[in-house]
């Protein structure tokens, strides 16, 4: 269970920087604050479409166990996750955009002298965003974005993995429906955002047992600064909680999860329509800041082409 849970969460963080750092107005406007978990590829205010590619590296430092205690990865073990996220977005009407993200996932694991590497396509995500009010449009009311998305189980589940140590597992095996609301505002060159996200996953059958994940709730907060050059920098904090999973309608003890993640991200425009985005992220390796969750650290780098 931790394998696919981590994968979905990690992808959300990986695409966050791209979604966050579209600030087009260095002063008195930032068009975006983080909502990447549902809207992975977000259009800038004046963009009609975009395509992007983002690479992500994450190394495992340890994990938080079911009691919330941090446990370092043993010296004989190692895990590295790589992802390449191909995404695109298009504006369908003036304040509504649709996006799609196709992840390619690779995992390398080593334990007790044995190692395995595998990967493949992950779970495809489609999302929609409606911005009835843009950040900066009103003085006292923040920008509001309504978010919805669906993640389809196009990846390979852990139980279907064929490689040793399930390194070719790339998906969660369930349809995930997301919804959320984002509030964003600008204060001179600063921009802040708070998003609340909800995820509901369909049940699935694994070797005759009916498994269902609990709903997942995520709070995302961000603060950023936009430079006159158009470059942006931001700090992002993410907190996710998830209740007990159920197998055959019985709650699985100690299967609840909690994730805390922080990242620092930046974006540099190379031209009007081409920008480079990058981020560094980590789960704090401290007790009680996670539950049933690997502790990772890594970075992302990507390039986004926007069209107008």
């Amino acid at each position: 269970m931790p394998r696919w849970s981590r994968s979905t969460f990690a992808r959300s963080v990986a695409v966050l920087a791209a979604a966050l750092l579209h600030a087009e107005r260095a002063f008195a406007q930032a068009c975006c604050a983080g909502s990447g978990a549902v809207t992975p590829a977000r259009l800038g205010v004046h963009e009609d479409a975009l395509v992007g590619l983002q690479a992500r590296y994450a190394g495992h430092l340890g994990s938080h166990d079911a009691e919330g205690e941090y446990v370092r990865t043993p010296s004989h073990a190692r895990e590295i996750n790589l992802e390449q996220n191909l995404f695109g977005a298009v504006r369908v009407v003036r304040r509504v955009q649709l996006s799609v993200l196709v992840p390619f996932v690779q995992t390398h694991r080593r334990a007790y002298g044995r190692s395995s590497t595998g990967g493949g396509i992950g779970d495809l995500n489609v999302a929609a965003r409606w911005d009835p009010l843009l950040a900066g449009e009103a003085q006292r009311v923040p920008g509001v974005g309504l978010l919805a998305g669906v993640t389809f189980p196009t990846g390979r589940t852990a139980e279907d993995a064929e490689r040793p140590m399930a390194t070719d597992a790339t998906g969660i095996g369930a349809v995930q429906a997301n919804g959320g609301i984002a509030f964003e505002q600008t204060f001179g060159p600063w921009f802040v955002g708070v998003s609340g996200l909800f995820a509901w996953r369909t049940p699935r059958t694994v070797r005759g047992a009916r498994m269902k994940l609990a709903p997942q709730y995520t709070l995302l907060a961000s603060v950023g600064y936009a430079f006159p050059s158009g470059a942006t920098a931001a700090l992002v904090g993410l907190y996710t909680v998830e209740g007990l999973a159920r197998v055959d309608d019985a709650a699985v003890p100690a299967s609840d999860r909690r994730v805390v993640s922080g990242s620092i991200a930046g974006s540099v425009p190379l031209t009007d329509w081409l920008r480079v985005v990058a981020s560094l992220f980590a789960n704090p390796p401290f007790a009680s800041l996670g539950l049933n969750q690997p502790v990772t650290a890594g970075g992302t780098v990507g390039v986004i082409w926007g069209f107008s």
Binding site: A28, Q29, V45, L134, G136, E137, A138, Q139
Partner: peptide
């Protein structure tokens, strides 16, 4: 023609 500036804070 498309205007490419900042959002006007109207209210």
């Amino acid at each position: 023609g498309k205007a490419l500036g900042c959002v006007l804070r109207k209210w």
